[in-house]
């Protein structure tokens, strides 16, 4: 389980009395991946909180009246950045995998699980 201390270290995470809340399944997925990658020793929680914080602060410079991206849009961008900084995501690996998933989805009939053929 997620330690409440870890979450307390994060700025403005959407939550209620019962813990974090998610607006969409992908948000929970990227949240869980971050926890697991941290547990695997890929980065310290401080490093994560700093990367996420920097991403969230980008909203400060938005022109007045612009809708800010969602919390987990920032989370996803921060996670990609940290993995790149750590040398886990190098070169075009993420964009290659993205195209591969896109092709896999487009060649999968509805109702079948989407699988990456490699």
């Amino acid at each position: 389980m997620t330690s409440p201390d870890l979450l307390a270290a994060l700025p403005a995470i959407p939550k209620d009395d019962g813990g974090p809340v998610f607006a969409a399944p992908w948000e929970a997925r990227v949240f869980a991946m971050t926890i697991k990658a941290h547990e695997a020793g890929l980065f310290s929680w401080n490093e994560w909180a700093e990367t996420l914080g920097a991403e969230l602060h980008k909203d400060d410079d938005l022109p007045l009246g612009t809708a800010a991206p969602g919390y987990y849009d920032h989370w996803l961008a921060a996670f990609e950045k940290l993995l790149t900084a750590k040398g886990v995501a190098t070169g075009s690996v993420l964009s290659d995998l993205k195209s591969a998933w896109d092709n896999a989805a487009k060649s999968t009939p509805h109702g079948q699980p989407i699988v990456l053929e490699r």
Binding site: L94, K98, Q112
Partner: peptide, 23 residues
């Protein structure tokens, strides 16, 4: 066919990468 949104594609790409690397 199935369709994944831009954001779902990014999340899946990360998951595949981290799984491949054993994290």
């Amino acid at each position: 066919h199935s369709e994944l949104s831009e954001i779902e594609l990014r999340v899946r790409a990360l998951e595949t990468l981290l799984t491949d690397k054993g994290y």
